[in-house]
């Protein structure tokens, strides 16, 4: 099966974006991945050997965490395993109302332009 390696982890995988492995389960595939590229282990797993909370692993289109057998799920050669770190954020501002013109604490927000644009001929 193919394991797709996300952009931030390729530097620990000899620059590769894909690794072909022979494995019987999701767990076995991840083991082979980290045996091939040992530096990946600390980025994927906690010290206790569990997948880090922000690391999502998808077997084809299914989140492995929600599969009945989770990482013990059987895989075939035609399957793909995608490793996708989570992406989230936001202003996180307290008291923001979301109403137009109101920032944190409902105060009007003035933003000073900080861009310099140079047109090069």
């Amino acid at each position: 099966m193919k394991i797709f390696i996300p952009t931030p982890l390729r530097v620990y995988a000899a620059g590769k974006d894909t690794l072909e492995v022979n494995a019987a389960t999701v767990s076995g595939a991840l083991d082979e991945l980290t045996r091939t590229f040992p530096d990946l282990r600390k980025h994927l797993f906690t010290g206790e050997g569990k997948l880090r909370a922000f690391v999502n692993v998808y077997l084809n289109d299914e989140d492995v965490r929600y599969l009945p057998q989770k990482e013990a799920t059987a895989v075939s050669a035609a399957d793909t395993l995608s490793i996708i770190p989570s992406i989230a954020g936001g202003t996180g501002r307290p008291g923001g109302t979301g109403r137009p013109g109101e920032g944190a604490f409902g105060a009007a927000v003035k933003i000073r332009p900080k861009c310099l644009i140079h047109i090069e001929e």
Partner: peptide
Amino acid sequence: HPDHPAQWSQTDFAEAHWLGC
């Protein structure tokens, strides 16, 4: 960032995991 500066927030930082991106 609606009505908020274009600066990263603590929330952005805590939830950022794509190193090198």
